[in-house]
Nucleic acid binder design. Structure first.
Ligand code: FES
Ligand code: FES
Lengths: 149, 149
DNA sequence: AATAAAAAAGATCGTTTTATCTTTTTTGTG
DNA sequence: CACAAAAAAGATAAAACGATCTTTTTTATT
């Protein structure tokens, strides 16, 4: 569904949402270690996210990446748009040029309701709201023993 | 979600389910034209499907691909398994090694029900059943003006 | 000012996916 | 049998994706 790049990006943002703020910045190295993602690749992604105002960063010693108030009001959908683009969600499950109720493919009726629902949830839920849920539900974003609690 | 290969394969099987039988075989060329898929690529896929008993074929003049009674009792899921494998459906949406209710990622609760339902529908519905629906609902599998009616 | 830490930028490499091309095998028909 | 139609098989090419490495820029600290 999503590319690796996009998965890393989302997890990195969630990680930053939980562990960083204006005064607590985190370097790529740390993030990559905690999430067990390839470090240089993640660095590139973070740059892309930064230039799209989805994360913030400062250079120099003591610098690093973090989410400011504004960044935390973005949504998962914003991240997906930034990294993967939207076409995957617009396209038909069977590869027809466009997915629409008007000219549905044979699996449209099975697939479409879910696509709509997921898309809405991703679009409407802010990162900060999502993090609240994470803290309540104790879900996991790392591959290693790293637990959010 | 699915690879191009898999999409082509599914559409080709549906096409064959509608237009072929033991006595009406269809060549790659025709199929590729009707579905607007790259011809040599589709040929390779059909071979793969054939060797996995999902479609039937005969060589020589008058030969071609078709679905026999047995082939029509297969499911979309069988096709997916054959071409893409199952890992995509087993893996977590955010890239954690395994998707499970036990160690859920932050989007598991949104995504998981969707995955389960689709998976069941794909697994339980036979090609022939699906074709019935197609004929009733008039859905479309081709990119060109080709209408199933 | 010198140093070192960190992101930014960009060049490079490898793998997988997608697609095409060529050759071989099978088989029905004249 | 000779021929042609069609799938089977395999080699090759092109593009997208995933990942790494090197260099440059910025900036806090000494
Ligand atoms: S038309 Fe195929 S999924 Fe909507
Ligand atoms: S654990 Fe991530 S989708 Fe199920």
């Amino acid at each position: 569904m999503l590319s690796n790049a996009c998965k890393y990006a989302i997890r990195a943002i969630l990680y930053l949402a939980i562990h960083s703020d204006e005064t607590t910045k985190i370097g790529v190295k740390k993030i990559a270690e905690e999430l067990e993602t390839p470090q240089p690749f993640l660095a590139k992604l973070l740059r892309q996210l930064t230039s799209n105002k989805l994360v913030s960063s400062t250079k120099g010693p003591g610098g690093g990446f973090f989410l400011d108030k504004n960044n935390k009001e973005k949504s998962i959908w914003d991240v997906i748009c930034c990294i993967d683009g939207t076409h995957k969600f617009e396209k038909c499950f069977l590869g027809l040029s466009k997915c629409s109720d008007k000219n549905p493919c044979p699996v449209h009726s099975t697939v479409s309701p879910f696509k709509k629902k997921i898309l809405n949830e991703f679009r409407d839920k802010t990162i900060s709201k999502l993090v609240e849920e994470i803290e309540v539900e104790g879900t996991v974003i790392s591959l290693k023993g790293f637990d959010l609690k």
